[in-house]
């Protein structure tokens, strides 16, 4: 810490004291973009979340108001779905990390000597993106269907009871989330591990640390930025996902997540205040969780 600060001191002194007009102009597109596509929708969302129904109005008719009761109602009604969303997202994130780390390590460290192999493996990780993820999820639904090979095999070895099934279960939803977000975990991990200085690992071994200790004390801390950004890129969208848990894909009415409740309130019930308040609650909870997580994992430089 001290050394970093020392090294950057001259740079700080040379920084222009006057606010630069050019810099403002250069920032303008970015600020405009944020205002238009983030701030405006966000504010409109907040306003919607406080709306109240028009007396004797038709379906989907709401007027401006300060009906904070919307929050109480929607959380009271859907709290199990909120909990389930975060539970599923957490499990999927951990699974994705456990699966992705070895992949990223092989590509980023072991395959360093063979650039061709490295790019080939990377392509394989990215390849699923070439097909729409809706199609891929539907394909999994087909593969896991009752008369499909997986269920038949599991039944044959008595892992699944004879009336058991995979689609529409907690398993299939978490599977779908994990599968769909693995590339988002692998790529940041790869980016960090690719720059891992192998001399540190050698040094660790020279100091008589076992391979496991070296991994725990050297490799993991050095790849922490990758782990943090990978888990964030997985956890945040997974918590709000409504495709995998949708009844049309891998879910059923017993696996609905908060995203499905927001979708149903918005598109079917036309209860916009409920949908908006649920979205804001979801955002707020994610913000808190992520804030605590980033602080505790000690990578402030990352964000």
């Amino acid at each position: 810490m001290a050394f970093t600060a020392f090294a950057s001191t001259p740079a700080v002194e040379q920084a222009p004291k006057k606010r630069s007009f050019i810099a403002l102009v250069l920032l303008l597109p970015g600020i405009l973009y944020l205002v238009l596509f983030f701030l405006t929708p966000l504010i409109s969302l907040v306003i919607t979340s406080f709306q109240q129904p028009v007396l004797d109005g038709d379906i989907g008719e709401y007027q401006a108001g300060f009906n904070w009761q919307n929050y109480v109602d929607s959380v009271g009604e859907y709290w199990p779905l909120i909990l389930r969303a975060f539970g599923f997202a957490l499990v999927a994130t951990v699974l994705a990390l456990v699966i992705s780390y070895p992949i990223a390590y092989v590509i980023g460290v072991k395959a360093r000597r063979w650039p061709l192999l490295q790019s080939l493996l990377l392509t394989l990780v990215i390849a699923p993106f070439f097909i729409s993820f809706l199609l891929r999820t539907l394909a999994w639904k087909q593969i896991m269907s009752d008369e499909g090979p997986i269920v038949q095999a599991l039944k044959a070895v008595a892992i699944l009871p004879s009336d058991g099934h995979l689609t529409g279960t907690t398993f299939s939803v978490i599977f779908g989330l994990t599968y769909n977000f693995i590339p988002f975990m692998t790529l940041p991990l790869y980016a960090t591990l690719e720059r891992l200085d192998l001399r540190y690992i050698e040094a660790g071994a020279d100091l008589y640390a076992s391979p496991f200790t070296v991994f725990r004390k050297v490799t993991i801390p050095l790849s922490m930025p990758g782990i943090v950004s990978g888990t964030l890129l997985t956890f945040i969208p997974a918590a709000g996902d409504y495709i995998n848990a949708s009844r049309d894909f891998l879910g059923s009415s017993s696996t609905a997540m908060v995203g499905n409740a927001i979708e149903a309130n918005f598109l079917v019930l036309q209860n916009y205040p409920a949908a908006a308040s649920l979205s804001i609650v979801l955002m707020a909870v994610i913000l808190v969780i992520v804030g605590v997580y980033v602080r505790r994992s000690g990578t402030e430089d990352l964000v």
């Binding site: 009415s253 609905a256 499905n260 409740a261 149903a264």
Partner: peptide, 8 residues
């Protein structure tokens, strides 16, 4: 009806 569909 949606309450049943969402299992909530």
């Amino acid at each position: 009806f949606q309450k049943v569909l969402l299992g909530s």
